[in-house]
Nucleic acid binder design. Structure first.
Lengths: 237, 237
DNA sequence: CGGCGCGCTTGATACAGATCAAAGAAAACT
DNA sequence: AGTTTTCTTTGATCTGTATCAAGCGCGCCG
């Protein structure tokens, strides 16, 4: 199915809720689309500070690094999420495609103008940034105080939640759900504050106790979601 | 010096930049003031989701916890910082006074109305939230990948930066600066993802090598800021 | 088809920081 | 002032995760 530029924004939860048709039209007129293959930066240097975008398909990661190379993935952006910050400081962290990504982007100054002009849009945007902040804080708790196993379980749960079709609010939960982790082992390690070896061992551990099954490299089946939830918060079985 | 309610907002960097006099007047009319002694929650349960505030004096901390008690301090709010989120999800993390705090607070719905009405204010607010997100991300890097010594040095530097008088942009840097850490050892540990014992040992280490000197419990003198900066990012001396 | 490279797993060992234990030092209370 | 309580330091030991070091699987390309 080919998405038209119009449907870009329509498909974006973050943008479309409660906005009048006229506003959406205006937004859509500013939108441009782009596909970014896995591993590539979403924007080139010139763009980085002058665009905002929403993810249509795939998963993007945002990361920050220390001079000596230590890297922390600080956020994942799933379909419908915003990327970029209007009015913000001119230092953008690095945004890359974790999987192949399809996105819909806007010239920043114009988007800012829209933001100022349309009350509803501004509110939607504030909510989005706020949600991101909440996610960052939850991750701080994970990085500061959770064990390796809890971290791994938390990540799987987050992917599960965000990759599930969210439209059908009350769909019957499948006993076994298959998902494709959007990150490589290295990226998982950078997100969880662990090493790739530990990530590998924790995945193994979770699969030996039976809460997940590892299919191929990134593909896993969640066999016991409750067990996973328990393990995401309390170390003790 | 007694601060009038009017001067509340005037003193707040975040609120006063580039706002027209009329807007400030309107904001000031909605403001209420409060003093919170160290250790107390800033707001009671009813309020928590229905107010926003700016810190006038002292330092507030925001924290999230796991069921078993593990606690992560996810943010510090220094004078001029915002607390609370307009339009946000109805789950507010716990905000407490780290030191005695003086704040200026607003009824949330009214503040939201203001936000929608005044373009400039909204922009100021977005910037504030964005800055908070940046800080959270930098802290994620710290929690995920820095050593205990680097963490301790980073915290001291952050306090140093935020507690310095920021009005005098180009003031001559003193060779030795004395600051009062706004957090107890326990709180520092919860912020850095360490234990109190390790915090104590790292402070000792930094003082033995001479970059800081420990005066009383919370009072320290920064004797070698450059050394501290080096230690905040690179482990190796 | 076979070698080559890259991402992943697995095992052995080391170490930073946690945990356990106790003693000082400040506050807080009487 | 003296006692209790709470916070901080210091020391000894333990442990989870990093680090070091092979080995494995699989896609890629000649």
């Amino acid at each position: 199915m080919r998405l038209t530029c119009r449907s870009c924004s329509i498909r974006s939860r973050a943008l479309c809720r409660a906005l009048p048709e006229a506003t959406l039209d205006q937004i859509n007129r500013l939108a441009r689309r782009r596909r970014v293959p896995a591993g590539r930066a979403l924007f080139n240097e010139d763009e980085a500070n002058n665009v905002v975008a929403t993810v249509l398909a795939g998963v993007a990661k945002v990361s920050v690094s220390l001079a000596d190379g230590r890297t922390q993935v600080v956020g994942l952006h799933f379909p419908s999420d915003f990327i970029g910050r209007p009015f913000a400081a001119p230092v953008a962290p690095l945004a890359e495609a974790a999987t192949d990504v399809e996105l819909c982007f806007f010239d920043r100054p114009r988007f800012e103008a829209l933001l100022v002009e349309h009350k509803g849009l501004e509110e939607v945007f504030v909510r989005q940034v706020t949600a991101e902040l909440d996610a960052a804080r939850e991750w701080m708790l994970l990085l500061g105080h959770k064990t390796a196993e809890e971290r791994m379980a938390s990540l799987i749960l987050q992917c599960l939640t965000r990759l599930e079709p969210s439209d059908c609010v009350a769909h019957v939960p499948a006993t076994e759900v298959r998902i494709e982790l959007p990150l490589s082992r290295t990226e998982i390690a950078q997100f969880l504050g662990l090493t790739i070896e530990t990530v590998s061992r924790m995945l193994k551990r979770l699969s030996t106790v039976g809460v997940i099954a590892i299919e191929s490299g990134r593909g896993i089946r969640v066999r016991d979601r409750a067990g996973l939830e328990r393990r995401a918060e309390a170390g003790k079985v």
